[in-house]
Simulated scan of single mutants.
Amino acid sequence: MSAFATFRSLAFMVVIASGLITAAWDGARSVPWVHDRDRGDVVWIDTGPR
């Protein structure tokens, strides 16, 4: 295998891996329960200084 073929294969793997990571990130961001902050089952207590 030549150096060019090795580099081409590596570049192709990087493109595929980047696409998969992007798809997973986009899928994880669109999960409804990630953005559900107003259900009322969590009570936030402000413990900061007044």
Rank of each mutant, 00 (worst) to 15 (best):
A28S: 08
I21H: 01
L10M: 12
V34C: 03
L20E: 02
A24C: 04
D46Q: 11
V43K: 15
P32G: 04
D41W: 14
S30E: 11
T6P: 00
V15Q: 04
R29I: 01
A5F: 10
I45V: 15
R50P: 12
R37V: 13
T6W: 02
A3C: 04
W33F: 11
V31H: 04
L20P: 00
F12R: 08
F7R: 14
V31W: 07
L10D: 10
A11K: 12
I16Q: 03
G19Q: 00
P49W: 08
A11R: 11
A5P: 00
V34K: 12
V43G: 03
V14E: 07
A5V: 13
S18F: 07
R39M: 09
A28F: 10
A11W: 10
T22S: 08
I21G: 02
V42Q: 07
V43E: 15
T22I: 13
G19V: 01
S30W: 10
T47S: 12
T6H: 06
G19L: 05
G48Q: 06
V42W: 04
A3W: 08
A17T: 09
F4K: 14
I16N: 02
R29V: 01
G48L: 13
I21S: 02
R29A: 00
F7H: 07
D41S: 09
R50K: 10
S2F: 05
G27M: 09
T22C: 11
V34H: 04
V15A: 14
D36G: 02
I16E: 04
A28N: 05
S2W: 03
M13R: 12
R50Y: 05
V43P: 00
